[in-house]
Nucleic acid binder design. Structure first.
Length: 464
RNA sequence: GGCGUCGUCGCCAAGUGGUAAGGCAAGGGUCUGCAAAACCCUUAUUCGCGGGUUCGAAUCUCGCCGACGCCUCCA
């Protein structure tokens, strides 16, 4: 199995620290308003990776954190007049529901900054002790970037280059302009905790280093997140963790590309946001997942009506493979049956080959389409349900690995009886060849979200 | 300006040295009263542009052009 590693910029063989165990940490969200579909992309990418690792026999310890102490949370809480942790807790619950709606498996654990303060303080004290950090005159504690020889190796930057950037201002309390805050002194009335350096709260990056240590230990296998986190967030995490433990922090760094809305990255600061809830009110979760699967997780992903419509059709096409055989099917010849069987086997082999190559989901999806076509052909040729069942089960197994539900849409409960009645009446009308009336029933039902499909065995229907 | 990713059919997108997957859209056909769905057939001598390496390159290399991301909070 191969995996692209940001830190080496190479696709490498995947080898874990411990056999059959993957320790995986994914940067979650800062909880202060509704999560958007860009967050969904990231969550889906790592959910797919996790599911595949599980499928390949690994136990996966999957940690996703919540940043619940931060400037933005504090500002928003002040606007709304609620305590910051109350606000963040509300959005933590909200995000958990969003993820569930997207069929993202729950993390093994979801640490929060506010519950990790003692360890964070211990971590910072340890860095000071080793000369990697210092308490400044203003009550902040900073990490000393010049104390880390490797600083910049994830993002491929050199300290000299970074200083050349025009936007960097030398903070009066910092020894070096690139030094970053581990601990921020509290402003008047702000949420804070006691520490050896006075009242304050953790800086952004230290939380992830501390929570990693608490949840997974000194060394992990995969650290994931959006590629916008490479610098400074992940760069700083590496600096902190490796200076603290003296060991390589994460073996593989995995970063997803950004969702593009109108040619630009979707982000809070640009304001071009579609929330997950807004998306799910219009399309099913499988559509978002299919959009991600059809692309490359590391590349930018186009999010617009055209790509979403295509994803929706792809989902419908996959669902077609799960339709049952006709009850009156005459059965398939033995050689056709074995063709289907070998199609299922080669689909599985192609699926694994694609996914083993740095989670090539587009290739994996192609394998599923091939299998769907073979199943549909067999059904068209008169296969019985017993004959297509094994291939459908293989197909189910593989689509589950990708987290696709492929469920039929649900309409109003209790409508079934009435719809069936209409279909029965229409059947009588059709016997009398009253086509105009028959088509009227079909068209009106379509408008109401019910699609009829006539076949030799009668009429079937589904919500659309 | 620095660092990085990328540019393959109308659209989305695999393929990373051996002669272009898959889906959508489009056209033709089978089935159907007509549809829908499904199935069959057709649709890139060519991979941003220009050199180079090689028996052979979309795949390696150099240059150029273009897009996007990061360098400031961000999945």
């Amino acid at each position: 199995m191969k995996i692209y590693n940001t830190i080496t910029r190479k696709t490498e063989e995947f080898v874990t620290h411990e056999p059959n165990l993957v320790k995986m940490y994914v940067c979650g969200v800062t909880v202060y308003n509704d999560a958007h579909v860009g967050h969904a992309m990231s969550a889906l990418v790592f959910d797919i990776i996790r599911r595949y690792l599980m499928y390949r026999g690994y136990e996966v310890k999957y940690v996703m954190n919540y940043t619940d102490v931060d400037d933005k949370i504090i500002n928003r809480a002040n606007e709304l007049g609620v305590p910051p942790l109350e606000l963040s807790n509300r959005y933590i619950e909200d995000y958990a529901r969003d993820l569930q709606s997207l069929n993202v498996l729950p993390a093994t654990s979801n640490p929060q900054v506010s519950k990790t303060i003692p360890l964070i303080i211990q971590f910072i004290a340890g860095l000071i002790e080793k000369g990697h950090a210092y308490a400044a005159s203003n009550g902040d504690v900073y990490f000393r970037v010049t104390s880390d020889e490797d600083y910049g190796r994830l993002s491929g930057r050199k300290l000299e280059d970074m200083q050349a950037g025009a936007r960097i201002e030398v903070g009066e309390a910092k020894d070096h302009p690139m030094d970053f805050a581990l601990w921020k002194a509290a402003k008047e009335g702000e949420i804070s905790w006691d520490s050896p350096w006075g009242k304050g709260r953790p800086g952004w990056h230290i939380e992830c280093s501390a929570m990693n240590l608490a949840e997974l230990g000194e060394q992990i296998d995969i650290h994931g997140g959006g590629n916008d986190l490479i610098f400074p967030h992940h760069e700083n995490e590496i600096a902190q963790s490796e200076c603290y433990t003296g060991k390589e922090f994460s073996r593989y760094w995995v970063h997803n590309g950004m969702l593009q809305l109108g040619g630009e990255k979707m982000s809070k600061s640009l304001g071009n946001i579609v929330s997950i809830k807004e998306f799910l009110s219009k399309r099913e979760a499988d559509v978002m997942r299919m959009l991600v699967l059809n692309g490359t997780y590391r590349a930018p992903l186009l999010f617009n009506n055209d790509t979403l419509d295509a994803a929706e059709k792809n989902v419908a096409r996959l669902k077609s493979g799960l339709k049952p055989a006709s009850p009156s099917a005459k059965g398939l010849a033995p050689e056709a049956e074995s063709t289907l069987k070998s199609a299922a086997e080669s689909a599985k082999a192609n699926f694994i080959e694609a996914m083993d190559n740095d989670f090539n989901t587009a290739g994996a999806i192609a394998a599923l389409f091939e299998l769907v076509k073979m199943i549909n052909t067999a059904r068209d040729n008169g296969a019985t349900q017993a004959q297509i069942q094994p291939a459908q089960e293989s197909f189910r197994e593989l689509s589950n690995v990708l987290g696709l539900k492929l469920e039929d849409k649900q309409g109003s409960e209790g409508a079934d009886a009435f719809i069936n009645l209409l279909i029965e009446v229409r059947g009588e009308v059709r016997k009398q060849k009253l086509w105009a009336m028959s088509d009227l029933i079909r068209d009106r039902l379509k408008e109401l979200g019910v699609t009829l499909e006539d076949s030799k065995d009668g009429t079937t229907w589904k919500w659309s």
